[in-house]
Write a protein that binds this DNA or RNA. Structure first.
Lengths: 404, 404
DNA sequence: CTTTAATTCGTTCTGTTACCGAACTTATTA
DNA sequence: TAATAAGTTCGGTAACAGAACGAATTAAAG
């Protein structure tokens, strides 16, 4: 019996595709070197992929010794996916091709009537964008929708989502699939944000990564060993309920969450009002702080001090390599500098904290990432237990340009 | 191109082994049904395994229509592993065969000189147990050592282990491998405890599981998607540093950990002393509480209230399906009943909390589990990304009997 | 500037491994 | 004797490997 591992055609096909996706235009000989498969096998697989329309010849190499090689590339427009970031106030919809390039990206206020209205709004936006870019609907294979809550895989509902009306009472996945006419996936928005930063932002190449989104509410996304942590009922990362900050045994903490009360925008505004006697918005607090307002500065310090404890809790439990801050408050540099100053005062070993590079677009980029991964897997992958495919890192620039 | 997935021989061999390990004495026809492979293939693989000495014929079926079937079983003594639970005060060493039966199990006080002395002590204990059971050293393939700290895979050292002298300055893995003469693995003891409870205890079949060990110190182990969470530097589960309980910004909290100060045995004793003016041990506090001592009861309440906040933090961040309590304090029913009473007061959705079934032996059983999994993988598995093998559940009784 | 050597690309051809499936034999019970 | 289940034999086939070889290109030698 030979010790070498023989793998099925499909399995190899997948690694060949990976090499082509990542290696840009690449010759068959190079693929053979990269994958360790024989030249003959690569030729067979590439031929099959070409016939099926997934890759195509794009040129030849030159300038080096030896025979020129024919190079192959992805047929980028062979399939598309829809990426959606659904928030309480705004919906963002984007369309991505196989090269991971984001084509259209549209934002609209979320339909306040909720439920089916939101589904219809998103589908309308997606199809509008598709026809604007002259993309055939048949080529769209998958939609990934980020939602502020915990999607339930069994029922298709979204739990713990107070900001989206009706999603807790309907099969949202089924509704999307009906309206779209193709597969749809739901995912928590902060989970998508980690994936986004892991793919193209601050967290590239980091397998153990946490994302803390701080704005109107708080949430966290956690990646362990390159995989998302979703929890038993998809409620992992419901950081608002961390028993920190406000007294967790008060009734109000049971509703809103002790940590959320202390650290999110409401808590900041309340704290400012208590200190100064004036009721102003969170952006105004940041502005006042820049002008030296003592109360505003105290509020920022206090907020950061609470946030640091939340980050410490994540670090103590999951020990991520990096913690990325996001959300309208978490993205502010004033918060980051304070967090970096306070964290070593209450946590023994260093924790790497940075703000997200992708800003408010982290979630939609994460949706694209998860969708593309899923698509690559269903098209070229085996039903392997670890169905990860590594997406290329290159397209960030293309992506930024495409979205003016 | 066929759509069916063909997998290498080795891959199938692995699932055949799994069927034999779990299915006890089993016929080739049954294996074929279970695995979906053809009878012919099963015959080939079983023949190969028999030649290599991993399985053997053990009997025949009877009493049903049709031809009798030859049944096969594991050759249980084809290989052994050493499982070790190294604590600050006690070392526990056990030897397990391929059937997951724990043979010998010895406990000794930990050599206080630390470092190489402990390594030698463990190796001596293991080889003593082996020769007592007449196990050939050559058949021992692997040692798994649970340590109270964070093993560093790169350097082989153990970090954050104040109770084991010298392990932070030497390559412990290399030292064990030199002394044993076979492979050795280090793992955090609480991580092993989760694995143990997941295998044979409270957490059977639960993929998202947390274990909180509360005794002299606090620690937690977390499983997500059936995999251990180890963190970037193996410091996941250093629950003592949770910024809860004592003021995390005090200097002492930075050393000992804010949560550990509040909830572990020192904190309990201090609290009792503050309330009653008397200095007594933690077991004595529990005893007094049973006799109605007000101060002792208050200390238990307070400890549980802190513990509940720690559990809430784990639930908010990772959302496990179940949280198992362990450690000398965590195993006490007085703590569990209080935790169950207090948790709903500060956490919005239900968290399933139970005490560990395996008691203080959770870690060593976890070590056996991880070792057997590893062994099955190296012997029969592919180098698949997800190298889990499901171990049989049956041997718990055998295990309990074996250890009087 | 030609010739030759070195180098790389890609194909053809010939295995080998790890499977499947049908047909057939064997053994057992009802 | 019929029904049924276990196990083998035989003949495929997909998915690879590997060696040999031709084809194309550049660098170096003459």
């Amino acid at each position: 019996m030979s010790d070498s591992l023989r793998i099925s055609r499909k399995f190899s096909q997948r690694s060949v595709m990976e090499a082509i996706v990542q290696g840009g235009p690449i010759s068959r000989a190079s693929i053979a070197k990269q994958t360790g498969l024989s030249k003959q096998t690569i030729s067979e697989i590439v031929r099959a992929l070409e016939v099926e329309g997934w890759v195509k010849e794009t040129g030849r190499t030159s300038g080096h010794v030896g025979r020129t090689a024919v190079t192959y590339e992805l047929v980028y427009d062979a399939a598309y996916i829809v990426a959606v970031d659904l928030g309480g106030t705004k919906v963002r919809v984007a369309i991505t091709d196989l090269a991971c390039q984001i084509f259209a990206e549209d934002t609209e206020p979320t339909d306040p009537r909720g439920g089916q209205y939101i589904v219809d709004q998103i589908v309308k936006l997606a199809f509008q964008a598709a026809s604007r870019q002259r993309i055939a609907r048949k080529k769209i294979r998958l939609a990934v929708v980020g939602v502020p809550g915990a999607p339930d895989a069994q029922t298709g509902r979204v739990l713990l989502a107070p900001n989206i009306a009706g999603f807790d009472k309907m099969d949202v996945v089924a509704a999307f699939e009906r309206a779209f006419g193709f597969d749809a996936m739901l995912e928590n928005d902060v989970n998508l944000a980690v994936l986004g930063e892991n793919w193209l932002g601050q967290g590239q190449g980091i397998d153990n990564l946490a994302y803390v989104a701080l704005g109107t509410g708080v949430g966290s996304g956690l990646m362990v060993g390159g995989q998302l942590v979703r929890g038993a009922i998809n409620a992992a990362g419901e950081l608002g309920f961390l028993p920190l900050g406000a007294d967790p045994f008060e009734a109000e903490s049971l509703r809103t969450g002790a940590f959320e009360r202390a650290v999110a925008s409401h808590g900041m505004a309340d704290r400012y009002a208590a200190l100064s006697g004036r009721v102003i918005s969170v952006p105004a607090i940041f502005e006042n702080a820049q002008n030296g307002d003592e109360a505003a500065l105290a509020v920022l310090d206090e907020t950061a001090r609470y946030l640091v404890r939340g980050i410490g809790a994540i670090a103590a439990i999951a020990n991520p390599e990096k913690v990325i801050l996001g959300g309208s408050i978490g993205l502010r540099p004033e918060i980051l500098e304070r967090v970096k100053a306070f964290l070593p005062q209450c946590f023994p070993y260093p924790v790497n904290v940075e703000t997200g590079e992708l800003g408010s677009r982290a979630a939609i980029i994460g949706a694209a990432a998860i969708g593309l991964g899923q698509l690559h897997n269903t098209l070229f992958g085996v039903d392997a237990p670890d169905g990860r495919i590594s997406l290329p890192r290159a397209s960030m620039t293309a992506l930024q340009e495409a979205v003016r």
